[in-house]
Design a protein around this nucleic acid. Sequence first.
DNA 1: CGGAACGTGTGG
DNA 2: CCACACGTTCCG
Length: 141
Amino acid sequence: MSQFQVPLAVQPELPGLYDFPQGQVMVGGFQGPGLPMAGSEPPLRGGGGDGRKKRKRCGTCEPCRRPANCGACTSCTNRRTHQICKLRKCEVLKKKVALLKEWKQHIPVWASQTPCPGERRHLDHICRSQPNLGEASSPFL
DNA sequence: CGGAACGTGTGG
DNA sequence: CCACACGTTCCG
Ligand SMILES: [Zn+2]
Ligand SMILES: [Zn+2]
């Protein structure tokens, strides 16, 4: 009614998705679009899945509720990228991905000593998702 | 089945 | 480091 809730209101995070270490989600002070909704776990098609399931946008953050694409960003102009308009890119999705798996998997490596260029390369990608996280997240360092 | 979007790797 | 492109998954 009042709010333009796109018919995509998806759960915050399916329980059992990428598991987090403890609670490093919440850097500084964020609004918190992670809708605290009950979790109805879908039939988990993990039978033959690798676990690389694609998450979906929260549908509560500003970019998520953007009615349409800007039509000026590369994602809008270049549809071959298969990416959503930068103005509509879910923040939650950006953050979650930032603190995702590769980190945990490689942290002990780079914590010990600067990893090889190859490993470091991947970390950069995830870091880029959110400048905020690039600094505050790593209980190891 | 088709459209849309995420996740990842590579190139510049 | 950033931007772009592909493959894959998800939903209607
Ligand atoms: Zn756009
Ligand atoms: Zn969102």
